[in-house]
Design a protein around this nucleic acid. Sequence first.
RNA 1: GGCCCGAUGGCGGAGUGGUGACGUAACGGACUGCAAAUCCGUGAACCCGGGUUCGAUUCCCGGUCGGGCCUCCA
Length: 463
Amino acid sequence: MTIRLYNTLTRRKDVLTPIDPARVTMYVCGPTVYSRAHIGNARPAVVFDVLRRLLRHEYGAAHVLYARNITDIDDRIIAESAATGVPIGEITRRTEDWYLADMGALGVEPPDIAPHATTSIPAMLAMMETLIAKGHAYAAQGHVLFDVPSFAGYGALSRRPLDEMIAGARVEVAPYKKSPADFVLWKPSSDDQPGWDSPWGYGRPGWHIECSAMIAESLGTTIDIHGGGQDLQFPHHENELAQSTCAHDGAALAQIWMHNGFLNMGSAEKMSKSLGNIQTIPELQAQGWPGEVLRLALLSAHYRQPLEWTQDLLQQTRKTLDSWCEVTTAFASCQEFSAVDYRQADVGVVEALTNDLNTPAAIARMHALANDVREADQRRHPEAEQIATSFRAAGLLLGLDLKPRPVAIVDSQERARVDAAIAARNAARAAKNWAESDRIRAELTAAGIVLEDGAGGTTWRRA
RNA sequence: GGCCCGAUGGCGGAGUGGUGACGUAACGGACUGCAAAUCCGUGAACCCGGGUUCGAUUCCCGGUCGGGCCUCCA
């Protein structure tokens, strides 16, 4: 099936044509590990996790190579260490562990490759030497700078004319820059700052060079998809593109550039650490929102659109997820996780995703499938089971495990206790002793168990 | 100031040159001892002004409002 993705470089939906369909490559800018990620940081992780699942569906799991970096050297990390007294290594290790745990809670699988900036210094130094040799970078006062005017294509990604950028610059231009637009590839470190020896002295890399070096090292010269948040479009991705293109004699860095939108917190204000209006994933979980609810909520809007992040959205999402899990309950083939494969996913859901990852359309299709299953099941139509399977498989494509309910009844004593209570209540109901039957229901409700009297008897589930 | 993006029902959120998804909320009904779930049904929107067109929410221009980036940021 043809996958079309919106390409920031061309400002239209382009057909994805992998350079090598047996090795589809995707790189997404990962976190700078200086403080715990918030739910807004999770949007790209979840979005590109879905894209990865779609790519695996189309090209085969063994033919997709996904890299997401860890930026573990950065001035914010140095500042965080200085402010808290916690050693840099501890901050970065701890924050990365949190990141992986938090994303895991949202059903995000770890990438195939997770390059770290600090272990890619040789590759960065090599790329800088190449850029200098080719006349696209120069050394000055312990710095190495990229010579922006030397690259005619600069500004193509963010559509910023170079002269206007210089004219509108609000930052004071460092004296060692040949052009105000030039950016730092390498900068000197003081003795108390982390650094590495280099031909230009003891120092550390600038922000942009790491991604260029790590992409070349781990995936290749030209990759199929490059992703990240909208805010990275400029200057980060523009600079990455410039460095890599110049280092590789004009070869494109990526075929398709994708950028996700932000989460808004009420009043259309974006969630950000500097505004202080963030919610971390453990905080949200502590409020009672399971990871899958958070994940589906993040997918409820198209990835390029802003998403209003509200309690109402989470409540609505939880309800949706509950009803979807209810749908698979009656079908034996859906009970066993191993029996369901995402390759059996409903074609309507797949089609929605191949259209620039239209998750809202995919979710709408899921609702339709759920209705189909309920209807077919009600009529005892043999097709019901098959639809239920394609429904659950499509859920896997979205990264949702739509397990049948009730779930997590590991305690057989508890099960026996609930069964006994239901029997007692049904006896009371048969005797029209409503006071007693309501008392029993209230007791179970207090224990977090919801009873449902259906045509086939009383069933229960966790609230 | 420059560049870019957006504006759809109470809310969230797709999509389309012509019978206006989907979800949730509201209302009516069926079912139910009550409830939940489910089912049936009813209302409910395309920012403003021009233009193109037989016809625009959809295309074009202008405006208003909102957001992002230009400095760290998913």
